[in-house]
Nucleic acid binder design. Structure first.
Length: 143
DNA sequence: GCCAACGTTGGC
DNA sequence: GCCAACGTTGGC
């Protein structure tokens, strides 16, 4: 199992939208960046991702699970084989964790979120995952 | 609203 | 294949 972080501008697609959508799932389309696309290609069914609000909020607000692996994004008109995965909301953060808090935590100083803030889909290490779960009051147990 | 960081485009 | 110009993202 691998861990990831996906970002969304809440005005475009918020955690609330995610939870209101049928079966709490959504196709994570619209990614037009090779690095982000490659991350999605590496995702396996059951992998988990933090859901991060960029823009004004800048915080980790929940956790989603990959329910369908990478497939071609039908909205892509570039002809460059950008794709998407399908994710399902599984937990809301009881204590949403802000970017400022993450930056203050020494154990998280190497997070991609800190080092390359522009990447919209990014890997998270096991140690970082555990630490953020603790801070956000998210359960790390497997169903 | 500004600007740094980064990715992409296109001329050569 | 290089690199300048440009556009976009996202934190501040």
């Amino acid at each position: 199992m691998n861990y990831w972080l996906i970002k969304s501008e809440p005005d475009t697609w918020s955690w609330d939208d995610q939870n209101k959508s049928p079966k709490k799932t959504t196709e994570w389309d619209g990614v037009r960046n090779y690095q982000a696309n490659n991350c999605m290609k590496d995702m396996a069914k059951g992998d988990r991702c933090f859901f991060y609000h960029s823009g004004k909020e800048r915080s980790i607000v929940g956790m989603v699970q990959v329910v369908k692996t990478w497939e071609l994004d039908p909205t892509d008109k570039t002809g460059r084989s950008f794709g998407m995965v399908t994710v399902m909301a599984i937990q809301s953060a009881k204590s949403p964790t802000t970017l400022a808090q993450i930056k203050d935590e020494a154990k998280l100083k190497d997070m991609v979120l800190v080092k390359n803030s522009r990447l919209s889909v990014q890997p998270v290490t096991g140690a970082q995952w555990k630490q953020v779960c603790k801070m956000a009051k998210l359960s790390n147990k497997q169903e």
